[in-house]
Amino acid sequence: MTEGPLIVVVDDDESVRESLHELLREFGFTVRSFASAEECLMAGRIGEACCLVSDIDMPGMSGCDLQQELRRRGEQVPIVFISAHADDVLRSQVLEQGARACLCKPFSDIVLLETIRAALGGAGTGGRSDTGQ
Score class of each variant (00 low, 15 high):
Asp57Ser: 06
Ala43Val: 07
Ile79Leu: 14
Arg45Ser: 08
Arg128Glu: 12
Ile116Arg: 12
Asp55Val: 13
Gly60Asp: 12
Phe27Asp: 11
Leu66Gln: 03
Gly74Asp: 08
Ile110Asp: 13
Asp130Pro: 04
Arg71Asn: 11
Leu24Thr: 04
Cys64Gly: 04
Asp88Arg: 11
Asp65Ala: 11
Ala35His: 09
Gly4Tyr: 11
Ser19His: 02
Arg45Gln: 08
Ser83Phe: 08
Asp130Glu: 11
Arg17Glu: 07
Val10Pro: 00
Glu48Gly: 06
Phe81Glu: 03
Leu52His: 12
Leu95Glu: 09
Ile7Pro: 02
Gly4Asn: 06
Val8Ser: 03
Glu39His: 08
Gly127Asp: 14
Asp87Cys: 05
Leu112Trp: 03
Phe107Trp: 01
Asp55Tyr: 04
Glu48Met: 07
Gly121Thr: 11
Gln76Phe: 06
Ile110Asn: 04
Ile79Val: 15
Ala101Gln: 12
Ala49Met: 08
Gly63Cys: 12
Leu24Tyr: 04
Ile116Pro: 09
Arg72Leu: 09
Val31Cys: 07
Ile116Asp: 08
Asp12Lys: 01
Val10Leu: 01
Lys105Pro: 11
Asp11Tyr: 07
Leu23Tyr: 11
Val77Glu: 08
Leu113Asp: 07
Gly28Met: 12
Ile46Arg: 00
Asp12Cys: 07
Ala43Asn: 12
Asp55Leu: 14
Ile82Ser: 02
Thr2Tyr: 02
Arg100Gln: 11
Ser33Asn: 03
